[in-house]
Nucleic acid binder design. Structure first.
Lengths: 198, 198, 198, 198
DNA sequence: CATGAATGAGAGTTCATTCAT
DNA sequence: CATGAATGAACTCTCATTCAT
């Protein structure tokens, strides 16, 4: 398994750095090779082609993402708590790795449709976690019984994603993690806020 | 004013068609010229360069977007009604122009950072409309008085955008406009739904 | 005869200005037309093509050059005096018209071989004047009886031309005409200078 | 050092051939690559861009020029002998390489001002050699003590250059080297020739 | 005579990938 | 396993010239 060899990770990490610092369109294979400390040709011993580096990068990082979040969620009882944990961790992981945030929110989106379709495939793992929380919440009465899971998932992911992207575009200058509770509150009660009476 | 000459529109429309049918990276100037029925060089009598075509395209279409939505909103009294109208029109305009939907949701996002920054500039007009609705809703008590306008705007835009993108990526096979009410409901009351009692 | 119409001269003069100020490769027909205050198409009512403007420009200016010099020379008796007069006038005409100097010494030389061959054709009129002086000087004993007229002509023209070019390349900052006597002295007596005894 | 690799020279030599045979404006990079027997992209492993090929070509050839002439001059005692040697070698080197003569006298002069300024920089090395001869000649009494070195240098370079250019423009049909002595004689004694008595 | 909108051919350069060493 | 020199396809933009008005 090539994925366990040290150079595999070296190249993935080099790709994140190079893309974050130079932008997607200025991230040539030769630059990644140099950053990784290997020859251009060596890249092709570990990856099929350039696209494969990017997909692998995404799978690798997103795999950790899902794993980490599932782990943290496991300890929570209520769906709303789980959703908060998901938001908190999503924000935290990207806050802790500014390069990764730039790469996933801005740079990788410049890739062509094919690559984006493959990235979406990878994203499904994340979306399944969201779906599971939503279904659980519907079942135990925390969420509306008429909730459309697919739409709610799109709202949750869309909102989190837009929040992170705005933060990255503004230069990661403010504290993203501090927004978790307010975003959570918004997602649970909407713009209307919590009402005891209509 | 070049913008009023027929060839200006011909070229913009040709660009939408060519990008939608061939993808961003396969939309060569010569292809756009051919589709528009003009010579390659003619493009440069109306646009500074290729990037200028894309920005103009976005400004042009988004300008209509904002104009149309502001017009429709004007007739509504309540902020929630205005939000519904915004969602309905957003979905309707893109539903009515499948090519435009592909271009704005998928293809134009592949552009480089410079172009994307300029596109974001244009988007600000749309976000201001959303902000106005939110502020109004806070003032007349429809929305929570503690609502964070910026976060709420990110939720609204993120949700709408993600909903449209998902629809486009799935081949525009289902009725997007039919989702307006449910998306609206979600944005107002959140996953928790409307509760008469906490 | 088109050459006598006012627009003919307007265009020639515009060409000199535009080439001097923008350089040969940035002297587009449209720029010359604008400077001349006529439409692009009008150029082609007076000149066959762009090359024709440049050749006409050269013929026109060089014609004045030869005419002026022949006129001044006519009043001189000795060949050496005639040579001095030629140098003085050559330097003076170009000193008096800095744009023309730039155009003839630097810009027009960037033209392609065809155009340069035609320019050389025009130059022959000037070289004939030089030849006449040389032959006269040989006949009346002012110049060596073994003088190779062709080589001497190349020396005279090469020296004058190089002197003017150096002056133009240095920004026309010093007084070119002040060099006439010394250049003349050099051409008559060479580096060795005048010697009463070998 | 790329300059010592065989392909570096292959490309330079190919450029001389292609420019001489097709003219400056018809010397496309792809043509030079083909002539050199390498791929288009290979050119850019050895040269920054097309202009860099031409400057390198000039530096390379002119470097040899100056080196060769300085070497030959070193063995001569008198300034006049040195000048003769310079002329002889200048003529000989270009006579021996007809392609190079075409390139330096006609084609490279069509380059834009930027390139020509860089070429002039290279030429300064040659002009310094001329200056050294002139100063030496003044010091040891061979040349006039009142000689203006800058003007004399312009005469010498202008005359040699004009002589070579005329020879190239006439199709290199006559023996250029045979003119060395007469040109030398002209430069030393001028049109007046050698006089024992004024 | 004069206009100026329209034409369309033509070339330098980058970079993912290969393969002989 | 690792190297890195070599490959070659692909595309934007300029500008001299024309011709319908």
């Amino acid at each position: 398994m090539k994925k366990n060899k040290p150079k595999y990770r070296q190249i993935i990490d080099a790709a994140v750095t190079v893309i974050a610092e130079n932008g997607y369109h200025q991230a040539q294979v030769s630059k990644i090779a140099k950053q990784a400390g290997v020859a251009d040709g060596t890249i092709y011993l570990y990856f099929k082609n350039k696209e494969d580096i990017l997909i692998s990068l995404f799978q690798d990082k997103m795999g950790y993402f899902v794993e980490k979040i599932e782990e943290e969620i496991a300890g929570k009882e209520k769906a709303t708590e789980k959703l908060l944990t998901l938001i908190e961790n999503h924000f935290k992981i990207l806050s802790d790795d500014p390069h990764l945030a730039i790469v996933t929110q801005l740079e990788l989106r410049q890739s062509n449709k094919d690559l984006r379709l493959k990235i979406n495939e990878v994203l499904k793992g994340y979306l399944k976690v969201v779906d599971k929380i939503l279904i659980e919440g519907k079942e135990n009465g925390e969420f509306s019984s008429t909730l459309d899971v697919r739409l709610a998932r799109q709202m949750i992911f869309g909102t989190i994603d837009e929040t992170v992207t705005t933060w990255v575009m503004n230069g990661q200058k403010y504290d993203l993690t501090a927004l978790s509770k307010k975003v959570h509150e918004l997602l649970i009660h909407g713009c209307g806020g919590f009402r005891s009476k209509g």
